[in-house]
Amino acid sequence: MQKTLIQNIIKINNMIEFKFNTPESMLVCTIHGRMGTETNEAFLSQVTAKIDESKTALEDPAKLKVCFDMKEVTYIASSFIRSCIVISRQVDAGHFNIANASPVIKKTFKIAGLDELLKVK
């Protein structure tokens, strides 16, 4: 069990890069590959931790914006979609967006009825 968890985290580390731009209060998470169910829990906890960390670095935590850059994402599972909703609620309304989604990923959010809520571009 422990081994699997460690492996997931390593995998996640390979899948996400965080870039925090303080002047713009913008946390950009660049995500790579397949976002399947097996990695989702670790993904969500990592992003949540990074959001908390970023908020503490800001004078006004409410200003934090989060962007998922999904240029390199080839597949998203239901759990990842749910994580996007959870993350979007961790910041103020309108402060979460998804950028560079491929047409397939864009369509996935569209069919799920979440493209507007999550501001998918």
């Binding site: 998203i76 239901s78 397939v104 369509k107 996935t108 069919i111 799920a112």
Partner: peptide, 10 residues
Amino acid sequence: AQIAAAVFQQ
């Protein structure tokens, strides 16, 4: 079901 449908079509 709608989210499942969205994921399924991939």
